[in-house]
Design a protein around this nucleic acid. Structure first.
Lengths: 114, 114
DNA sequence: TCGATATTTATCGAATCATTGAGGTGAATG
DNA sequence: CATTCACCTCAATGATTCGATAAATATCGA
């Protein structure tokens, strides 16, 4: 995942409705949810929801599949992992992490920080 | 961390320069970096860098401290953790996660997914 | 206090984004 | 085949954001 893709993904999530949709999908798991169900759950007009889902799809954060008349959206967990990995890459230079760093492993070296 | 704060944080990171700055700070660790050094490292005018740093600070992603003439910025690792926690909260409904889900623990139930 | 360095604030044009309604496509049903 | 349902695309509008320049503020050393 390169910088441009990450910026696109973060930009896609930096919006009230899209963040809410994404969280719903993350919680829904591999079964996903239909576009209509999402619009319903969040009280957003269908056309608006379609717009937001398109943005999330363009950013690679969700994927879609057709199921008879409905289109089912699912969160792309690999993309989410890649996103987090990008942001925490080489955290603290790779050694002796800060206490709450996302890469907590090396906080082991006790006393390294005041 | 509530939805509004998360949106603010994601919005702050959804920009080429700010994402780059944040990564530099994450890698720099608790020592942080001076505003000037950041502007220098990324080839961004100092005033622009100041603007972007202000956005990151407003979003709660970085903190600042004065060191003589320089202002040293450091990544706020707790905020980063909270951000990731928010996005993956109750992932897959809490049970039998998808193979690449960010909350991999429950992928243990082998065969739960095709 | 003066000058130099480091950072912030102010301002403005260009670009991007969110929202909404109207109209269009594809799939099931009678 | 025509209708209905679920969803998407398009275009217009109002709001927000980015990048750059120029001016202002804060700190240090002499």
């Amino acid at each position: 995942m390169n910088a441009m893709e990450v910026v696109r993904a973060l930009g896609a999530l930096a919006q009230e409705h899209r963040l809410a949709v994404y969280r719903l999908l993350v919680q829904a798991g591999p079964d996903g949810m239909a576009a209509g169900a999402l619009a319903d759950a969040l009280g957003v007009p269908a056309s608006s929801m379609s717009f937001h889902l398109a943005q999330l799809a363009y950013a690679g954060l969700v994927s879609q599949r057709r199921q008879s008349r409905s289109i089912i959206y699912t969160a792309d967990y690999q993309a989410m992992n890649a996103l987090m990995a990008y942001m925490t890459e080489n955290c603290c230079g790779g050694v002796a992490c800060a206490p709450d760093a996302p890469c907590n492993p090396a906080a082991a070296e006790e006393g390294a920080l005041p």
